[in-house]
Write a protein that binds this DNA or RNA. Structure first.
Ligand SMILES: [Mn+2]
Ligand SMILES: [Mn+2]
Ligand SMILES: [Zn+2]
Ligand SMILES: [Zn+2]
Lengths: 134, 134
DNA sequence: ACCACAATTGACAACCGTTATCGGTATCAA
DNA sequence: TTGATACCGATAACGGTTGTCAATTGTGGT
């Protein structure tokens, strides 16, 4: 079983033709497209996937934690999520997103004291700024 | 000039009657309502504010950094933003949100090394878990 | 291989939170 | 006070997302 099919299985999804197309694209792509944008990109690349399927698959992958969601104005963008703890570097000028996973991230986060009774299950940090290219 | 009017002025907004009503409510409220929800809450409280004004005001306050936005499924919730750096504790069970501003937050964040050329302008950390009440 | 059945797909319609319009009103500096 | 300007709000329009459902596909058992 290949990487793509395994990723889908782990997310509890049958590795169908359309889902393989979507996941393969997400793995290769460095950008952060919306469902609408990804649908257009796939069609332009010669693939045939319905818009509903793109929405359903991205939603399922997000729920499974395979992709992270990035809210825009009245729409949502999706990006393959890096393995392990990481932060997102988001350029306010060009919109580019990078993943940053410094080794000391775990230690820094763990040293913070949370209110008694609060059970931490997940954490997300987005850093906004201007990238080197801009 | 009162606290409410000053806050509006700092955000570059005229302190109109409707904006005072909205900001006063946001300061007192501990919840995190959407524009639609806040509009209903204000009407139920006897105030008269148009839905468009609620949307416009919340959008302007968010852009000014006075409130933080919390995306939900196909809608956005708003919450008065705490002064200074802080994290958000979000309960996955009841949806309650708390602000956490530990003193060591600045130091921990500043110790991370970012890629050369990336200028940090803002940061946001959301911690997900289950609160003490749940 | 074959089969039966549940899961999935996709064209299309509907939904609904948000934004655009625009005539009337409130704010504020001069 | 007054004129210029910002703002309000009822309503219409917009558009990203979700629901529908007949046709198709993936899968495990035979
Ligand atoms: Mn990520
Ligand atoms: Mn906040
Ligand atoms: Zn950039
Ligand atoms: Zn809770």
């Amino acid at each position: 079983m290949g990487e793509v099919a395994g990723l889908l299985r782990r997310a509890g999804l049958r590795p169908t033709t359309q889902r393989r197309i979507i996941v393969t694209d997400l793995i290769d792509r460095t950008g952060t497209p919306t469902a609408l944008e990804l649908h257009a990109l796939l069609r332009d690349a010669g693939h045939r996937v319905g818009l509903s399927t793109v929405y359903r698959t991205l939603g399922a992958l997000a729920e499974a934690g395979v992709v992270h969601t990035f809210p825009r104005r009245n729409e949502v963008a999706f990006r393959r999520c890096a393995d392990g703890p990481h932060q997102h570097l988001i350029c306010l000028s060009c919109g580019r997103i990078e993943d940053l996973a410094p080794p000391q991230l775990d230690a820094a986060a763990g040293s913070l004291a949370y209110p008694a009774g609060f059970t931490v299950q997940g954490r997300r940090t987005d850093v906004y700024g201007v990238c080197a290219a801009c």
